[in-house]
Write a protein that binds this DNA or RNA. Structure first.
Lengths: 185, 185
DNA sequence: CTAAATGTTCATTATGTTCTGAAAATACCT
DNA sequence: AGGTATTTTCAGAACATAATGAACATTTAG
């Protein structure tokens, strides 16, 4: 498959950003290429277009599958597998958020929880636990909030985001109207 | 400085997570240690407690400074520098978000913008640009929203988060009250 | 069943990242 | 100025991660 300069540039950029986004260079490139291709691509096409080994493509496919970022397609009379991005851009963003949460936050949250179950033995530990508690509460609040937002429909989420900091005005408004009916804090 | 088992465990965990969070092992350990220490620590103390070289500590300090995550203190009659975490947990979380946005999203957003300025030359490019546009709009919406939220006070943000998916009910409520005054979508 | 086509695995090689430690720079004191 | 404590730098060593490609496995057509 032949790429125009602009497409090349995008694919290479995604390669460079790949590791920052939690996967590696080739996986970034592969995903970028699938995204901008109108037709699903076979493993061979990926290998040739990106100049990476066949084996590497196979591993990349495996990884992208584990992130649930691609879907496999078949063409009649052709037993190769063809790959394409799975779902809408929104869904992809969701999946990436979720995966990263699992890798970057959940393990820490679980360690913190375990730690906080035990009694501090001295002043030093008492202070440390206080800090850990703050971190724990913050992380927990953020992850809970994130997963609730993920459950909203894209439309609602979109409205909410476009509203931006305006939400805060709505909160004030609500507090003025019915101060006693406020969210438990 | 001597660490209890539990503190050790936390520090080591942060080391392991370090690279997932955008810095490296020793920087993760250093920051964790500073967080749970009641007293600010000197470079030598960090080096000895964590068993890492003096030079490595120096580079780590530099990096943590660039993330604005630590502050430098001095003790009277002592010309060593002592380090401690800068600001509250909330502020740290903010800084980390911001830094990561700069590294992980801004470059891509800028590439996408440049790309979208040019006219597509053929059908292939037309399709590709369509995808890029979707990504661009999503990333832009998310970053704008994030930066607006960051400007809210921790209290308001906290209220908002605890409210969780409940926001969506408020949106419905508002739409029912004044459908014509709705956010431009 | 065999042969051709496709997909996967994994030991080895290549590349990239982090860490060390000695040397250089800086800051402070007398 | 000279001397000492402290920090910074950076080349190279150690370590970690990613990529290759040949061997192996699987599938399907004939």
């Amino acid at each position: 498959m032949e790429l125009t300069d602009k497409m090349q540039a995008f694919v290479m950029h995604c390669g460079e950003m790949g590791s920052r986004w939690g996967f590696n260079r080739t996986i970034g490139q592969m995903y970028a290429l699938l995204l901008i291709s109108e037709e699903p691509l076979s493993a061979n096409e990926l290998s040739q277009t990106l100049h990476i080994s066949r084996g590497n493509v196979s591993m990349g496919i495996k990884e992208l599958n584990s992130w649930q970022l691609i879907a496999t397609r078949h063409k009649p009379g052709d037993r190769k597998e063809y790959y394409q991005p799975a779902g809408s851009i929104w869904q992809m963003a969701n999946r990436v958020f979720e995966q990263r949460r699992k890798r970057e936050i959940d393990p820490t949250l679980s360690l913190l929880r375990d730690n906080l179950l035990e009694e501090p033995r001295d002043q030093q530990e008492r202070y440390a636990q206080q800090r850990l508690l703050e971190i724990h509460d913050l992380l927990e609040m953020i992850t809970e909030w994130a997963s609730e937002l993920q459950r909203l429909s894209p439309e609602k989420l979109s409205t909410l985001m476009k509203l931006g900091a305006g939400v805060s005005k709505i909160l004030d408004f609500r507090d003025k109207l019915s101060p006693k009916d406020r969210t438990e804090s």
